[in-house]
Design a protein around this nucleic acid. Structure first.
Lengths: 198, 198
DNA sequence: GGTTTCACATACCGTTGGTATGTCAAGTAA
DNA sequence: TTACTTGACATACCAACGGTATGTGAAACC
């Protein structure tokens, strides 16, 4: 049974968590290519044998880390959306939460920069789809069905918005310009408004 | 004088061009990380010594390739824009040309996927700025000054649009959906329209 | 309580990016 | 022409990397 909890299973789970936590810190700080497995296992206090007992490859480890980060972002976006009553406000709040999530370095480097390059764009896209991007598609679909959004294919629109927010999040993280977040949000909000049904 | 053209300089230039051409093909087809220097020099018919005589590192070679690709895209975008008389049409034509440039695999993989990961987002951004992104900022600035675009900070807007188009270009390249380009363009055009001064 | 399983540790390997050095023709000055 | 220098590579080599094959000892099972 998977419900069993012996000391063995606990140890295993903890080792795995440690590996994920330490590699995530290193990947976020230095980038996937710049951090070696030796550095990861040293930080985690285990050996390469342990790492390869839990993960198939360095790429597989990165995939697990990325999924973790993405899940966190998705939760934040969904929470911000659910806090609003009106569908339109839900979309706006989710988008804004996504932009603000860009302040997290893990989010930028792991998810946006290294993700597509390490996993390939196709796989990255698939993971993105079942992460935060799914909420975006859901929200847009709801709006179209409710007649609040001009009828149109949702997929291209979601891609445009997703890309816009990804890039904006990266830009916001590196720019020192004060009010950049508000300016960006204003421009994005205007774009969203333009999609409203008439 | 740099204008001198002996057999030496010619040979040097040709070797460099061959290196750039072959590595570009390989980088585009397999991605930066998956292609080794051995494969590159074999394709180019030279040795690693020649490569390191022309470039400081594998990263430096990639940087040169990326700059070349980016220049080509910038030329295409600028040409499409210049073909239009009205400032607003120039922006629209440039954006559309950019989207269509996404059909080129070199463009996708080298410029959009591997670029930020290999060079780091900051350097990639700087290169992007002096490439096609510059034309976008120029066009937007012109429109604002001409009173055709609602007065607003141009930088955030340019980032949003640039990101939207980058992502859309990648999506268009992988989707089999017919009419995807037109749907995407329609959504993008609508966004652009929303920015018009009233 | 003997056996099996499992979660690692140890030892090792092929390949990779990078470097140090060698080589020989093209350029230069007498 | 000749002696010398420069430059465009080729050759040989290295440390580090991701990955694998094998060893080990405690926990789980019968």
């Amino acid at each position: 049974m998977t419900g069993e909890r012996g000391p063995r299973a606990l140890q295993r789970a903890e080792t795995r968590r440690t590996l994920l936590r330490e590699s995530r810190k290193l990947f976020a700080a230095q980038g996937y290519a710049a951090v070696g497995l030796a550095e990861i296992v040293r930080a985690a206090g285990v050996t390469k044998g342990a790492l390869y007992h839990h993960f198939d490859s360095k790429t597989d480890l990165f995939r697990a880390v990325l999924a973790e980060v993405q899940e966190e972002v998705a939760v934040r976006v969904a929470a911000a959306g659910d806090a609003q009553a009106e569908p339109w406000d839900q979309l706006a709040a989710g988008c804004r939460a996504f932009l603000e999530a860009g302040a997290d370095p893990d989010f930028q480097r792991i998810l946006l920069v290294d993700g597509p390059a390490v996993l390939g764009w196709a796989e990255w896209r698939a993971l993105d789809e079942q992460g935060s991007a799914r909420h975006l598609v859901d929200a847009l679909t709801t709006l179209v069905e409710a007649g609040l959004l001009a009828p149109q294919p949702v997929q291209p629109l979601a891609r445009l918005l997703s890309g816009a927010m990804n890039e904006a999040a990266l830009w916001l993280a590196t720019t020192a310009e004060p009010g950049a977040l508000e300016d960006t949000w204003a421009a994005l909000a205007r774009m969203l408004e333009s999609l409203r049904a008439e």
